[in-house]
């Protein structure tokens, strides 16, 4: 007959055994968890010249290897030693900038934005041979703007009227599509929205090929939107 004391022992043992995988997992996670300051530059998912002639190889090389790399380096410097930020993804940081210590908040906003925005931008690009949005995204764009051409006109306006450095976005606000613009490296993530498509309108995105002619870059941009990626992103995030 099991005494009360035995029962307690057994319970304790069971608890320990049950907790073991959790403990192990947690330890592993702790070991794997990125210490603050370990962000890396993802490789460009295609060759520098993959978007020619719409975006030239030299621009892609400097944009990815220099500009994007610099944001990664600066972000790592900014969060180094900030224990409260350890393990957070760059998106986590940007979604809640108020959780970032005030002395590094602006640097994280600027450079974290530079990291996340470019991560998305590269994925949004691929020569599309006249391709258009597909599936649910195509339907949602037609519902919201009437036609793909109307969407293009609105998106172009967002890119053209962003004075100075910044971005134009197709974002999800809840489950609604919205076109928006942001200055510098600000991201829709910090406003509670989810970016689906990013167009960089910093001069460094187009100056070597288009110089002051941002309008020509924006017109060319429609030839290199990876609509498969954006449509899948919409299907995944809006459902």
């Amino acid at each position: 007959m099991m005494t009360r004391r035995d029962a307690m022992k057994k319970t304790a043992l069971l608890t320990a055994v049950t907790a073991l995988p959790w403990l192990l997992r947690n330890q592993t996670q702790a070991a794997d968890a990125a210490p603050a300051g370990s962000f890396t530059l993802p490789p460009l998912p295609y060759a520098f010249d993959a978007l020619e002639p719409y975006i030239d190889a030299r621009t892609m090389e400097i944009h990815h290897d220099k500009h994007h790399q610099t944001y990664v380096g600066n972000l790592n410097k900014a969060v180094a030693g900030q224990a409260s930020l350890a393990g957070k993804s760059v998106e986590d940081l940007l979604r809640d900038l108020s959780a970032v210590p005030e002395d590094v908040r602006k640097v994280v906003q600027n450079n974290g934005g530079g990291v996340a925005n470019h991560n998305l931008y590269w994925q949004c690009l691929k020569k599309n041979e006249g391709g258009k949005p597909a599936g649910e995204l195509a339907k949602a764009i037609e519902k919201k703007w009437g036609s793909y051409d109307n969407f293009k006109a609105e998106f172009t306006k967002a890119g053209m009227t962003q004075f100075g450095s910044g971005w134009a976005w197709l974002s999800l606000d809840g489950r609604q599509l919205v076109i928006e613009q942001s200055p510098n490296q600000d991201t829709p993530l910090s406003k509670g929205r989810v970016p689906l498509l990013a167009m960089d309108v910093w001069e460094h995105a187009y100056y070597l090929k288009y110089q002051n002619r941002r309008a020509d870059y924006v017109a060319a941009f429609y030839n290199v939107i990876n609509w498969d990626f954006v449509s899948e992103r919409y299907a995944k995030l809006a459902s």
Binding site: I62, K66, H67, T70, G164, S165, W202, E203, H204, Y207, L208, Q211, N212
Partner: peptide, 12 residues
């Protein structure tokens, strides 16, 4: 320090 002031000569 707009990029257009230096991008042709100094890039980033």
């Amino acid at each position: 320090v707009w990029e257009h002031a230096y991008y042709i000569d100094y890039r980033n």
